[in-house]
Simulated scan of single mutants.
Amino acid sequence: MQPTPVATTDNILVLGAGELGLAMLHALAGLPGVQVTVMLRPAAPGAASADRRGLLAELDGLGVGVVTADVVNDSEQSLATLFSGFDRLISCLGFVSGPGMQLKLTRAALRSDVKHYVPWQFGVDYDQIGYGSPQNLFDEQLDVRQLLRAQSRLQWQIIATGMFTSFLFEPAFGVVDLQHNRVRALGSWETAVTVTTPQDIARLTARILFDPERLNRVTFTAGDTITYRQLADVIDQSLGRQVERLVWTLPVLSAELAAQPDDSMRRYRAVFAQGKGVAWPKAQTYNAQRQIETTGLQGWVDAHLRCV
């Protein structure tokens, strides 16, 4: 059964309308007793693109309100003032917003009157990975958790999802290279990774958000948890081909990162190759325990790669 909002009108502000943000807006907009607003960056004067006009029309059709703010250039106090007009705040602004932004948004939420905050932590188990990992952006995520855990005014929820399923197939990531018919394992073929689609993340967040048992704690979800061997097997079987299988060992990835320490993809490869905090059993997740269906690797491949 879908948990329902407890307030007569629950005002929710979603930060960002990218891939996850837009999915979140669709998941929330139809809930009873909820008013959803999205925060977008201001458009440059006279520069409303066709994409922007299309987005605004889509949001209007969903009944989603729009406010504008610039998380990079606006002050924490300015953001806090904006956030104070809402009951709940969900950040769908990821690392692309730049270093320091996750902390800035969290401090603004703490300075505001908002009651409930879901930060951008839709990823790995940062607590298990710990400080000093190959991906330096992860340290900031631990700082965010420390800020939230050190206070009691603002209720919070952290939702761990693993990586976006599609990221496994991102050419720049280099794990699945269909153009050259290759699959590369990070670390080893038995290294595991948890993946979830943005649509499932949004659907699950819309449930977890109103679940009082999930307040002030980390909730684990998963579309699927697979090894890189299973990934290669699914591609072979589904696409009727035999991919070349290569292993990016941790020493090799560490050396590549040392040669180009500012390369974000090399940072991601190295941290996922360690295999720590990047996977958890699907059977132990929120969605599995509540028998909520999610898209597994096979379903994603069937939907997106059949014609490749």
Rank of each mutant, 00 (worst) to 15 (best):
A7S: 15
T8W: 14
N11D: 12
L13M: 07
V14P: 09
V14G: 00
L15K: 01
A17H: 08
G18R: 07
G18W: 11
E19S: 15
L25K: 12
H26Y: 15
A27N: 02
G30P: 04
G33S: 07
M39H: 06
M39V: 07
P45F: 14
A48R: 15
A48T: 12
A48W: 15
S49P: 09
S49D: 05
R52A: 09
L59H: 11
D60W: 12
G61C: 05
L62I: 07
G63M: 04
V66D: 04
V67Q: 00
V72Q: 15
N73C: 07
S75P: 09
E76L: 07
S78P: 00
T81Y: 15
T81D: 14
T81A: 11
S84K: 10
R88E: 01
S91E: 01
G98H: 11
K104P: 04
R107S: 02
A109M: 09
A109K: 14
S112M: 12
D113Q: 14
V114E: 15
V114Q: 10
K115E: 08
V118H: 03
Q121H: 15
D125L: 14
G130R: 10
Y131D: 03
G132D: 04
G132W: 07
S133A: 10
Q135K: 11
N136I: 13
L137E: 13
D139T: 01
D143N: 10
D143G: 04
Q146V: 12
L147V: 06
A150W: 12
Q151V: 01
R153L: 02
L154I: 13
Q155Y: 08
I158S: 06
I158A: 08
I159E: 04
T165I: 08
S166L: 08
F167V: 15
F169Y: 12
E170D: 11
G174W: 15
V176M: 15
L178H: 09
Q179W: 14
V183R: 05
V183T: 06
G187I: 14
G187K: 11
W189G: 02
A192W: 15
V193Y: 14
Q199A: 09
I201F: 04
R203D: 04
T205E: 10
A206G: 03
R207T: 01
I208P: 10
L209M: 09
F210G: 02
D211M: 02
D211Y: 05
L215R: 15
N216G: 02
R217D: 04
R217I: 06
R217Q: 13
V218I: 13
F220G: 02
T221N: 04
I226K: 07
I226E: 11
T227A: 09
L231R: 09
L231D: 03
L231M: 05
A232Q: 00
I235E: 00
I235Y: 06
D236C: 02
S238R: 12
S238H: 13
L239Y: 09
G240L: 07
R241L: 00
L246N: 07
V247Q: 14
W248F: 14
T249V: 01
T249A: 04
L250K: 13
V252Y: 14
L257N: 05
P261R: 08
R269K: 07
G275T: 00
G275H: 06
K276F: 11
A279V: 02
A279P: 12
A283M: 05
A283P: 03
N287Q: 09
I292H: 05
I292D: 06
E293N: 10
T294E: 05
T294R: 13
G296C: 00
V301Y: 13
A303M: 03
L305G: 04
L305I: 01
